Computed example of a mutant assay.
Amino acid sequence: MEATVSNFHYGAVTPVAAFLMACLGAALGLRCTTRAIRRGTNRVGWLALGAVSIGCGIWTMHFIAMAGFTIDGLSMQYDSATTVLSLVVAIAVVAVGVFLVGFRGTGTAVLATAGVFTGLGVAAMHYLGMAAMHSPGELRYSSLTVALSILIAVVAATAALWAAVSVHGLGASLGASLIMGVAVTGMHYTGMAAVDIPVDHHGAGTQSSAGMMSFLLVMLVGPLAALIMSAVIVMFDGDAMLGADEPGPRSSVPVPGRAVAGQGGPASHHHPGT
């Protein structure tokens, strides 16, 4: 007997909220990574913050989306330890990719290696999160759809890393984060489309929607706090918030009224407002 499976128990609320969280994490991560690469100062700290932002964004996207996942109208129970482990995996694999491009450059081989590793890690986070779920029956997956979801994850991760090292303007980064939100959310729902759950009896291992929401709120406290902290740091750092005309790490921003090295007069070529 097949169970009635739904990914949209609350309608558009969970997919829209999941998409916005993925976009937020991507946007913050891109600005942090751009700040690290373009300026060079405190590179390790900014790359780490970027990895935490992207990892937490992906993870919160996953579990907000899972809040709308039901079997026969009932929400799932989750193993807390495995759920937290999936968060650690998400941050760790993103960190590997971010630090690779942050320190090894933007070559095709480096970008491809970092993208593949990070994409596989994101997929591992997704399916590890699924493994944390107590379902009334054994989860079965369509191999073809799983492979498609992994491919989407790899492409999305590679695109995110490419954007981090190639897209420097604030507006362009926001656009890239929207594309990343679509890709990461699409990967999630593609993975969910691969799930088939035959059940012998109803209700085993399930809980009420209220119980699921309580679990979700507890699990989201840490990642949401990390994203808020990252947003505050980015907002109050002028270098991280610079637009498309931001200079590279080796260039200097002339100060109005101060002579430029090697010139006798004031920095007359300085652009107003920068």
Rank of each mutant, 00 (worst) to 15 (best):
I150S: 07
R31W: 09
L151Y: 08
A109C: 05
T206V: 12
A194F: 09
D72P: 09
S166V: 12
R250V: 13
W162N: 14
C32V: 08
L100V: 09
G191S: 07
G29P: 07
S149R: 09
T118C: 05
E138W: 00
Q77S: 13
L242G: 05
V253A: 01
A92R: 01
G211K: 08
G68W: 13
H270V: 07
T185I: 07
G264K: 02
F69I: 15
M66H: 11
S251L: 05
D239L: 09
V98W: 07
C56A: 15
A183S: 10
T83E: 00
V52G: 03
A183E: 04
R140F: 10
S166L: 11
M125N: 04
G211L: 07
T185C: 09
V110G: 04
G119C: 02
T274Y: 02
A131N: 03
T158I: 06
A22Q: 13
L170G: 08
V232E: 02
G115H: 09
L227K: 10
V165L: 08
D245K: 01
G238T: 03
S251V: 06
G119P: 03
S80E: 08
F117S: 07
H270W: 07
S149L: 11
V234T: 10
V122H: 02
R250D: 11
Q263W: 04
L174M: 14
R39F: 02
S6L: 11
T33Y: 04
L161D: 05
I71D: 05
A164V: 03
S142W: 00
P249H: 11
A17H: 07
A132W: 01
I58F: 13
G40Q: 10
S230L: 08
M187S: 06
F103A: 05
G57W: 06
G264D: 02
S6Y: 08
